[in-house]
Design a protein around this nucleic acid. Structure first.
Lengths: 116, 116
DNA sequence: ATTTACTACTATGCAACACATAATACCTGT
DNA sequence: ACAGGTATTATGTGTTGCATAGTAGTAAAT
């Protein structure tokens, strides 16, 4: 029993790929640890949860787009501070282009076919 | 052996959810059969292939967002002309809002964190 | 000193979907 | 009959968002 199409579900689907771009974009400002990244994304109205972000960071790290260093915290366990590698910067640039092109295409289409 | 993050793959991921919106948007102009839909989307630089569109149309039809009628063709097998149901129109409106919100959030984020 | 609460990270599994691939069926012209 | 183009259907795979649960560290409260 699957096959549910609804707005909520589609929102998740739309986030796919974009979350990767958004995470890289946050890290373009400088290193950050997961909770900081989540807070910044929430501040931009881009929802993301731990269960999504942690695996994503691990994938990006394994693919050499990110590195991290441990840092002690005064209020809890040590944190992993992530930052972009040169390849990560390159990937970010490419994904920004991909996003721009797709967003343009969608906006154009929606405008053309606007229903009253 | 999985775990490949690259621009190509992310492009697919970004399309998820958006293709549903784009398909509904094309049908907002009036009924169309799959090949027409594909052509219109390609005209807007939104890539989609048969293997993606046919299952998508079936999902939307099963969820009562679309209906179709058969029509004979003078140059090949009969075609399924799809059109939006009232619920489909409603879904389209919701997805347009979802898209606008997400696109705004992403654009804002990219602008803020623009790397030099 | 044990409990509680908070923070940070890790592990596992599921569901949804794009896409590749292949197959089926219909029509037209030779 | 056969070939080629068009339209639809069926099946399987890989990626990923997210839910859920668990581990571990710190600090304040009892």
């Amino acid at each position: 029993m699957t096959q549910t199409i609804n707005t909520e579900n589609t929102q998740s689907q739309m986030r796919k790929g974009v979350l990767e771009l958004c995470t890289l974009s946050v890290l373009a400002m400088g290193e950050a640890y997961p909770t900081e990244i989540i807070d910044q994304l929430k501040g931009s109205k881009m929802m993301i949860v731990e269960g999504t972000l942690y695996p994503l960071l691990t994938r990006l790290k394994n693919a050499n787009y990110l590195t991290y260093r441990w840092e002690e915290s005064t209020s809890g366990p040590p944190r992993k501070y992530y930052k972009l590698t040169p390849q990560g910067v390159k990937l970010l640039t490419e994904l920004e282009n991909t996003w721009d092109e797709m967003a343009d295409a969608v906006n154009k289409l929606l405008k053309e076919n606007k229903h009253k």
